[in-house]
Structure formats: structure tokens, C-alpha cells
Design a protein around this nucleic acid. Sequence first.
DNA 1: GTTTCAGCAG
DNA 2: CTGCTGAAAC
Lengths: 264, 264
Amino acid sequence: MGLKVCSFNVNSIRARKELILKWLQEKEKNIDILCLQEVKVQEELFPYKDFEEIGYKAVVYSQKAYNGVAVLLRRNIDHIIKGIGDEYFDQQKRVLSVKTGDLWIINVYAPHGDLRGEDKYYYKLDWYRRFSQFLKDNFSPEEKIIMVGDFNVAIEDKDVWNPELLKDSIGTMPEEREAFRNILNWGFVDCFRYLYPDKKQFTWWDYIGGAVWRDEGMRIDYILATKPVVEHLKDIYVDTWTRKRRKPTPSDHAPVIGLFEGIK
Amino acid sequence: MGLKVCSFNVNSIRARKELILKWLQEKEKNIDILCLQEVKVQEELFPYKDFEEIGYKAVVYSQKAYNGVAVLLRRNIDHIIKGIGDEYFDQQKRVLSVKTGDLWIINVYAPHGDLRGEDKYYYKLDWYRRFSQFLKDNFSPEEKIIMVGDFNVAIEDKDVWNPELLKDSIGTMPEEREAFRNILNWGFVDCFRYLYPDKKQFTWWDYIGGAVWRDEGMRIDYILATKPVVEHLKDIYVDTWTRKRRKPTPSDHAPVIGLFEGIK
DNA sequence: GTTTCAGCAG
DNA sequence: CTGCTGAAAC
């Protein structure tokens, strides 16, 4: 009777629909809240029906070709916030907040970024600043909040397979880490690292060169929780069932799954 | 101990590979000579290996994105002619001739054409003239020749589902029919019509509107044979096993299969 | 309706 | 390496 929450960057809901449905039915039958990133589809074209048939209501905030997030759940939907309240940044559909009971779910797809000095490098840092503001404006660390998603930052060196090789690359730069750290400092706990201080576990592996087979990846997908929720954290793990296959082609990310017990 | 010859416009060997292999192994296990059209792939990228594994040697004459033909066979390859000996027309890879024993196989993908007066309308008629010349230059009607392929012409009104509706459309125009008739008159018999003078049987159905389910098609794929071969013709049929399905997506054409008995 | 490509994004 | 778009071809 725990609460099972999943964050999964699917890299296109259309390309991945069959695999996700199979996974939900054969491997992870009792996920309560499924947060998807990079669904890359117009909202009207989201396959609502397929997920309804297995019991999920879908809240979708998305756009054509890029970005797009969705929260699928088997619980009441009591409030929805689409975007971060910024006309400029909300041109890219990256954040969807859904309240169920007294629990907020914030589903995030942070910008990928680029190398230092490039346009997208600055966009990412600016986005993080604006996103911090959004959190401060709408939530309090005293509330029950589970924030999940692809933050496109590996918070520590132990979260990348080869820190020397990947020093100062996208997702490991100190200024990116600081931007993400600000979010945590506001009042979130990194659930995975909280339970497993030393574990090497990645959530993303490059498609190129079959990196997943040598476990050359990064941990950039997170389940974060405010203090009132962390108390209920029971376990958290990365499920490579979808990722470690060739056909049908998987997402380059694996889902992260958190278990919370005794939460209403 | 007959000879089974197949003509199949696959509309991309890469998109269709799995379906064709499945069909060859589950439905048509004993095809001796398989002629493919519109393989749409660079020769280096043709999946030679997959067909070798089930016993076929592949001779490929193809190009990127458009056109491209291949002859797959389980017999000796004694001579190969690529193209029609014309630098201009051979920019489009449409004709591949393979000799096995004293039997010639000529595999043809004729131009699609366009409505009267358009560039591609003239290209098609010009191509037919040049192709006639190629036949005269290289072969004799006294030889054993099986010529197959997508000729993009429905030779008679009974070869289209609605002759009134499709009058003067691509593939039914009198000048296209005359161009194809010239080929037949040189010394080829239309094997299907020879055995079945009145049968309504199409080989192509438009993807649009699910035409195949209402049998709204055209007969534009043929197996032709010179007199010394027609004597051995036993049967000919269109196999809709691949065409009548939704997944994996089939070609818009169905294969035509001819049976010749007592041929060396 | 389906496939191809280039160009872009990740 | 995989995905999406938009145009062109059929």
C-alpha cells in the first residue's frame, strides 16, 4: 500500500509507446504515478487512450517535435500547473505540476544545454534561475512535494562513469551543478543518493557506441522530495528492463522508481 | 522440381526486410528466383547476409532513395547485365538482367510517369523506347527469357478496378499501353493473362483509404515469358499474404509468382 | 499513406 | 545513434 513513483525520459512517446505499455504490464504493474519527459508530441496526439485502458489518467503539457512532459496517475487530480509562469521559457514545455491529495508532483525536463559560452549553455543556466523562482513563488519546502525528472546535470563526480574524461562537459560543469544544487538547497533531498551514498548507478547512456553495455553513463534523472515526503521513502532504483535491449529501440534513459510507504 | 519465379515491388528493402524474410520462411519456402523492385538502397547497404542465410545469392543494381532492383536466386549466376546500356537512363537503376543456365531473367522497374504533358510523362515514354532498343540489342525472342517487374502500366481496362474513373490516368493512358504493348509484341507473353483471360486480379493497391480492403487496385506487375518458356508455364498467382496486413506495414504491391515445369 | 532525405536536436 | 520535421516521390 505504498506509493510508487516513476520518472522516465522516454525520448518520444510515439516511438516508445508499445515498449512502455509492455513494460507497465509485464514488469512494473503497480506504478501509481508515472512522470514522462521528452514526449515530443502535440498534446492532441498523445496516446491518452492506450494509457486509460490500463488505468492511468494522463495530464499532458507538450508541443510538437521537442520537449513535452506528462504525468500519468491512478489517483485524483486536484490541481494542475502547466509551465513555470514565464511566457518566454514556457515556449518550451518542460514543467508540469500536478497535485493529488496533499501531495504535489512536479515533473521536469531541464534544458540539455551546450558547452560553455554557447547560446544553449546560457539558456540552461537562465532557465534554472527562472525555475528556482517558480518553486519559491508556488511552493513551500514544508509541503509534501515529489519533484522528478531529467535535470540534465550529474550532481557529483560519482554520478558520471568517467569524471576525468567528462570534466567540464555538458551536465558536469560546476556552474550547472551549482544551478541544480540551488534547487536542492531550497528544500529537496536527492532520494537516490540519500539511501545509497556510494552506489554507482546511472540513468542515461549515450546511444552511440553501445555505451549501455559497458555501463558508461551518467545519473541525470532524479527523484527529489521535500522533508515531509523523504520520511516515507522506502527504496529507489533504476530499472534497466527497457534500456538493455535492441528491439524495439529503447530510450537512451532508464526509468527511476521510488517507493514511499505510509503516504496518503 | 518446377521453377518458381517471383516479382515483388517491395517499396524499400530496409523497411520491408523482416516481412519479406518471414514471408519467405513461413509462406513461400521454395521460390527459386526472387526479383525485387524499388529496393531504394545503396548497393553496399543491401542486406545480403540475411538472404544468404536462407540460401539466396543476391545480385543488386541500386541507388540511394529511389528505384533499385535485385535478383535473388538459388541457382548459378552465369552472366549479369546492369542497366540498359544508356548513360542517361541508367542514372536511374531500373533494369537488371541475370543469366542462369540458358535462362535469362530480366528484372524491371519502369518509371512511374505522370499525367500527360508533364516531364515525367515524357520520361516514361522515352524510357520505354530506349528499353525496347536494349532488348533488341541484347536478346532474341527465340531465347529462354523470363522478364518480370513493375511496368507501371495496366495493359487493358480489365486490369484496373474502375476503368471509367481511371481513364487517362497514370498507367492507363493509351500511349503508355502502346509503349508496353511494343515490348510484348517483340516476343513476350503476359503469363497471367495467358492462363487467365478473364480473371480480375490486381498487384497494386493505393495505400490511401485502405484500397486493398475493397480490392480497388491495378495489375501493373507482370511475369512475361518468351515462347520457349511459356510452354513450361504451369500456373501464376498473386500472393496477398504480405499485402493484407497492417503491421508490419506492407509494400503497396503484392508479389506475383509464376510456376514453370520441366525447365532446365 | 508510406518512404526517402537533409537538417537539426539530443 | 535515435528522433522529429517538411518536402518530394510514388
